[in-house]
Structures are given as C-alpha cells and as structure tokens.
C-alpha cells in the first residue's frame, strides 16, 4: 500500500498536470459552469479513489479523459450531484462565452458537425479539440486503435459528404441512396 504522502503527491502531480485539459474537456461538453464543475470534481474524486489504476506516463491524460467521459455519461443520465465544494469553480466558469445561436446558424461546418451521430462527433472532437492521437483516443474510449481509426475515417467522410451536400445540390447523385434499398 502506498504511504499516504506518496498518494497525495501522486494525485497532486496528476491534478496539476491535467487540471486545465480535463476541465476543458468537461466544459466543452456540458451546458453550463455548474454542470462542468460537478463533473470535473467527480472526475478527480474518482481519480483519487482509483489512483493506483491511473497509468503512468503519456497514457495518464487520455485515461483521465476516459474517466471524465464516464462521469459525463452518468451526469447526462440525470445523476446530478451538486456539491458545495464546486460552488466557487462553478461561479468562475460562468464567465465562459459560449458560441451564440446566430453564429451556429450561419456556419455550415457547425451545422454539419452538429448533425453527425454522437460517436462521430466524439472522435472528431477528441482529435481536434483535445488534440489526441488515435492511440490516445482508444484509451479514452476503451476500444482498439483500429476501431478509432475506422471511426475517424467514417466521421470525416460523413462530414465531407454533409458539407458537399450543403453546397451545390446534386439531386441525381443522391437519388441512388434509397433508404432500406439493398441496391
């Protein structure tokens, strides 16, 4: 068993090194500062409990994202646990300016991205917002690197298709894809 001081030191190292990226990950995927603060706190509470499971080195951060991801999933299911200890953080995060509706409406990339299935949005955002490699994403999602590559590939293709469809309408090209038609 780790001596208590050792545990605390390890936690503090992880906390210091990953506070901003993990909080960023959470803020980008929650609706408001309050939710973000709760999810963030619970993520690191989990890290504290599972300290010995946290991989050392480069895998630590994607592993933490993976924990945050599960906490988020629970949170979205309604398991909300507002705690007093996150009040200060929540109030600080209230200052974040989130993109307004009018910006979203004007932008075809925003729209195309918003219309992607959740799992496609997830891999694309992990790659482009968190800047993770396929190998790191596989740690976050707990699946194989190949699965991530395939999903990234599909997501990118779907996005490209949505963008090209949004530009010049090509009814003839689309007509061959009939729903449920085994072609």
């Amino acid at each position: 068993m780790r001596p208590p001081d050792d545990r605390r030191r390890r936690f503090e190292e992880l906390y210091r090194a990953n506070h901003d990226p993990v909080l960023g990950y959470v803020v980008r995927r929650t609706a408001n500062g309050h939710d973000a603060a709760d999810v963030f706190a619970e993520t690191f509470l989990t890290v504290w409990r599972r300290l010995d499971d946290v991989p050392v080195g480069e895998k630590a951060r994607p592993w933490l994202f993976g924990v945050a991801r599960r906490v988020l999933a629970n949170h979205h299911r309604g398991a909300r646990r507002h705690t007093a200890l996150t009040a200060r953080l929540a109030s600080e995060l209230r200052a974040i300016q989130r993109p307004g509706e009018e910006a979203a409406g004007a932008d075809i990339l925003t729209r195309a991205f918003a219309e992607l299935p959740d799992d496609y949005r997830e891999v694309l955002s992990l790659a482009d917002w968190e800047g993770l490699s396929a190998a790191e994403i596989s740690v976050v999602l707990g699946c194989s690197v190949n699965a991530v590559r395939i999903r990234l590939h599909r997501a990118g293709r779907r996005l490209a298709r949505a963008l090209s469809e949004d530009h010049p309408p090509r009814p003839a090209a689309r007509a061959r894809v009939q729903e449920g038609d085994p072609a």
Partner: peptide, 30 residues
C-alpha cells in the same frame, strides 16, 4: 476536414478563469 475551429472554449481560456484558490480548494477537498 478539421473541426478544430468549432472548439467552444480553449484550455487557455479556461485556465485564465479558474483561480489558484479554486484549484487548491478542490484538490484539498478531494
């Protein structure tokens, strides 16, 4: 196609908002 520019908020922006006090307090609680 990259979706990087759709990132609603960067880590740097967040880092600027969160006070040292808030960081330390939470770590302490945990």
């Amino acid at each position: 196609i990259t979706v990087g520019r759709l990132n609603p908020v960067t880590d740097d922006e967040i880092a600027r908002l969160v006070s040292t006090q808030s960081r330390d307090e939470l770590a302490e609680h945990i």
